[in-house]
Design a protein around this nucleic acid. Structure first.
Lengths: 347, 347
DNA sequence: CTGAAAGCGCTTACAG
DNA sequence: CTGAAAGCGCTTACAG
């Protein structure tokens, strides 16, 4: 491997001068610059970023941890964040934890050991406490804890957080279904271990609004699913397989699950939304391209990504800053997968 | 930040000893180990991986470059590769180039500068030549050039390659449509700039088989699309908007485009596959969950990911190895989006 | 079993 | 404008 010393020797200068040329410290004489640049090209020299990072204490790398790259929700956020980071001169690294807290912890620990200047944690399976502990000493971290935050209100943390009001998201879904006239609803919820803790909050909001309206949501109308299309499909297929009355509407705690629910419904001969209304959550890009297009509660992904990136970036530039907390509001997007139940006129 | 020196001082030993404890070099006395470990915990010390990487010449990081994280095809491959890499003790970093060669080049250059031990390039918008040049001197690289390789047969390269026979993929699609009785086919192809160069080869194979069977594929039956669902939708919508006879079948050069084509068809009042057969390419997870489920040419994603990872890994362990080249074969997966054209009995 | 020394490839003041 | 020196935080032989 060719080092800065090699370049210096061949060009007949010191490493310091080569370094100055590379970093465009304009103090170097024109012809020296030329000579150095041409030997750099000639030798195919590329500076070792580890060495540079070591002395500068900065890597100009940012990383994002996400739990499940197979759920398009995360890539859609990553895309925006990446662009913003790149504009600011940072390289953007994505790390997939597969919903495994051990993997999350391993990434966090290695990333924090000088590899990155800042970190966005979309989801890593770690509790708030564990995160705090890990993040305390190194690179600034902003975490999206998907509702977990609410359990920790008032705590002081070195970690900045961005959250989405997922209880409200559940409420929006319930209000929509209620307004269409549904009185027999079901919920297909991502299981905590496979989908992150946040899904509990989504259900909580959904259930509360229903119950306040006098519409009970009994346990047998709640299905736990693995966080994938297949998970939604198989869970809902089981829920309607037992015989008995079908619900007229389903709330799925994310769009992937909703797509699975629709699949199960169609396979069982139900029309959507004719026999069954389905509302999802996330507003993944794909949702609007399905037929029927999915009614869903949208998370402001772009805003989330941009805010999160701005936050780390400013924390990186000025580490003395206090950490911040921020909650984003979801909105309902009505498309074609929901309608009034058969025989009910909708207002 | 707490360094190895701090730990050494507090524990009353040398940095060398601390280092030995950390890396489990068993030479250290039991009680010294205990003392060191407890001060490590006490001080919250974490070794600086940049420094370690610098002296060891290894980072235990592997990276994967992909062009479009929004196309689930790539994440599905990344998932498998990541798992394999982790089993081998490597951290796995994902980099998204957004189909921009400049971004690809920037990533490549920085990644190769000591940040990773090996690199898998799924797609980066760079030509084979540019890749060779960049990869020559640093970390072993395996590239998936999606057909470009065929243009460079016989070249000697320091870069190992894995490829999929995409001409064959196009052929499979054509053979399937032909066998169903279709005589008026169209193709919706990802535009090179937005989807990588490989799509040309897919079209080439498709077209050749058609023409050999005496079924022409005139230019107006070929649409270029941006590589997304929306791209496929709008391109096909325009193709059928002009009036005139509709084709009875469409080959889309990836599943995302196919989903868009189906959307456009349904929106235009066409039944799929009743009025229009659609065949995709990739076999993205989502494809089997659509109704109608998508007939598609499957790329052996898992095999690709595993082979690619094995390849870098072995190149990392033994850099003196010769680079390898490998071509994977696609297969046809018949589902519900294709059928014979109206009025034609299928064998 | 532990320590002193050199070095990984850079950058950063500071002389000159 | 250029160079000599120290140092970033680690690891690696090598003494003892």
């Amino acid at each position: 491997m060719v080092t800065i010393k090699d370049v210096a020797r061949v060009a007949g200068v010191t490493p310091a001068t080569v370094s100055n040329v590379i970093r465009n410290k304009g103090v170097v004489a024109e012809d020296t610059q030329k000579r150095v640049r041409s030997t750099i090209k000639e030798l195919g020299y590329r500076p070792n970023l580890m060495a540079r990072g070591l002395v500068q204490g900065r890597s100009f790398n940012l990383a994002m941890l996400l739990s499940n790259i197979a759920n398009p929700f995360y890539p859609e956020i990553a895309l925006e964040a990446e662009q913003r980071a790149r504009e600011a001169g940072y390289q953007f690294l994505l790390c997939n934890t597969q919903h495994d807290p051990r993997v999350g912890r391993a990434y966090l620990s290695r990333l924090h050991s000088g590899l990155v200047d800042g970190l966005i944690v979309l989801e890593c399976g770690l509790s708030t406490g564990a995160l705090d502990e890990l993040a305390a000493q190194r690179a600034p971290t902003v975490a999206c804890l998907w509702g977990e935050l609410f359990e920790h209100e008032g705590r002081k943390s070195p970690v900045s957080t961005i959250d989405v009001d997922f209880e409200r998201a559940g409420e929006l879904a319930a209000e929509h279904l209620l307004s269409l006239g549904h009185r027999d609803c079901a919920a297909v919820i991502g299981a905590p271990a496979a989908s992150g803790a946040g899904h509990v909050y989504r259900l909580r909001g959904f259930r509360r609004v229903l119950e306040e309206a006098g519409v009970p949501l009994p346990d047998e109308r709640i299905g736990l699913a693995e966080g994938s299309v297949e998970g939604g499909r198989s869970t809902f297929a089981t829920m309607i397989a037992g015989g008995g009355a079908w619900p007229t509407a389903v709330f799925a705690s994310n769009d992937l699950l909703a797509i699975g629910v629709i699949e199960a419904a169609l396979d069982a001969g139900l029309a959507v939304p004719g026999d069954l209304s389905v509302v999802g959550l996330d507003d993944v890009l794909m949702s609007r391209h399905l037929r029927p297009a999915l009614t869903t509660v949208a998370v402001p992904k772009r805003e989330l990504a941009l805010k999160a990136t701005e936050l780390v970036l400013s924390l990186v530039e000025d580490p003395s800053q206090r950490s911040a907390s921020l909650v984003l509001e979801p909105t309902l997007v009505v498309r074609q997968s929901t309608a009034g139940p058969r025989g009910v006129r909708t207002s």
